[in-house]
């Protein structure tokens, strides 16, 4: 939500190494960063602070565990955005979230996934709710370097009744 920009950023972690000279803090061990409805998690996170106090966070995944983030959206209904990638960069000045390598962003309406996009690089602007998907982990689109895919569910606005769960009678002799 837009209200997140006025919220403080808290980080929970197991270990911390801090380099006060370069203002770089490295958190390791199920790091959890929260700021209002924004919630980011990863095995390791490196936070650097600029002179005005804005933080630039880089979350990196570990073996079998990707960095993830989750944030509530403005607008009616219980709408959330969830993302995951091998590496996530978050700049709380521009409020831009960048997901690198095997990136995925899902938009949810309550429990139901409204849409899901997969690509090598996804950048997401939470203020304008605008996102861009590139096909190389470097962040630019190289021709012929493969395609990203987005699957959109039928728009919920049409309030399509979810298909009744089909009751499979147990087949005889199963």
């Amino acid at each position: 939500e837009k209200a997140d920009s006025s919220k403080p950023t808290e980080i929970a972690f197991d270990q911390l190494e801090s380099d006060d000279v370069k203002q770089i803090k490295t958190f390791t061990g199920n790091v959890v960063l929260t700021r209002g409805t924004l919630l980011m998690k990863s095995p390791k996170a490196v936070v650097t602070e600029d002179p005005e106090g804005y933080q630039f966070v880089v979350l990196t995944s570990g073996p079998g565990v990707q960095a993830t983030f989750r944030q509530k959206l403005d607008g009616a209904g219980d709408q959330w955005v969830e993302g995951q990638a091998d590496r996530i960069e978050y700049d709380n000045k521009t409020e831009l979230v960048k997901l690198y390598a095997k990136a995925r962003i899902k938009k949810l309406e309550g429990p139901k996934t409204a849409s899901q996009v997969d690509g090598e690089f996804i950048s997401y602007d939470s203020r304008k709710e605008f996102f861009a998907v590139k096909n190389t982990a470097s962040g630019e689109t190289k021709p012929g370097a493969g395609r990203s895919t987005m699957v959109i569910q039928p728009s919920s606005k049409l309030a399509v009744p979810p298909a009744p769960p089909s009751t499979n009678q147990p087949a005889p002799g199963k």
Binding site: K41, T113, Q153, S166, A171
Partner: peptide, 22 residues
């Protein structure tokens, strides 16, 4: 004749993996 057992109802798209609760 008995119905074929546990046939996936065709309407259900089986491509979307169930959402993983975080």
């Amino acid at each position: 004749a008995p119905l074929p057992t546990d046939k996936q109802p065709s309407g259900q798209p089986s491509t979307i993996p169930p959402a993983v609760p975080i």
